[in-house]
Amino acid sequence: MVVFDKPKSLTDAELHYCPGCTHGIIHRLVAEAIDALGIEGKAIGVAPVGCAVMAYNYFACDMVEAAHGRAPAVATGIKRSLPDNIVFTYQGDGDLASIGMAETVHAATRNENITVIFVNNAIYGMTGGQMAPTSLPGQVTQTSPYGRDVKTAGYPVKIAELLSALDGPEFIARVAVNNVKNVRNAKKVIQKAFENQIAGKGFSLVEVISSCPTNWGMTPQNALNWVEEKMIPYYPLGIYKDKSAEKEGEAK
């Protein structure tokens, strides 16, 4: 008999996410990685402002709620104070790629030994569907009612590409959770991002392409299809930077 258990690193609190939202999957993947590595007792998570604002109720490890965009700075403080603990942030696109861009870039360039889970669903969910820094060109949102016009609103920010241009960070990857295959791969990559921290390698960020049926105005299935058809072509999946692997490659 196969029992579908909840990871130990998630609490019993009921998630508040909308039906069809993929935050639940991503929470689970993070918790599974923590369980698999046996680090729940050492883990300290930093929650963002955004849909995942109450992530501190869901992860069973110690948690800190940060101001909007500041999670990497807060995590820096925690990690500097407790270098033997495992510190991660869980942030959305408005939080990480807009208001918190400076904190993101500088934590990355310092190669701060933390793990960053970046959930990109191309919209501000919590406030009701405004244009995000990662909203696609032409995407209709509450604050881009005629579609994102790149002439006035600029282009989406490609975080994985942008950060991988820095010398600092250890590991930058982009994954998706729109189908089983991608979920399995995402799990592997997220776990790697934690393993890097345990090994003291430094800043590891996983961008997870996520969906928002509610604010995209789609059924959950259509939202997953939209991820496949629109999001992933604009935000290609893959490992963008892996300094250790590069070094091994050079050695060979």
């Binding site: 940060a66 101001a67 500041r70 700075a73 807060v74 820096t76 925690i78 990690k79 500097r80 400076a102």
Partner: peptide
């Protein structure tokens, strides 16, 4: 801003 948030973390 980052500095005070690092303070918050510690």
């Amino acid at each position: 801003i980052a500095a005070i948030n690092m303070v918050y973390g510690v």
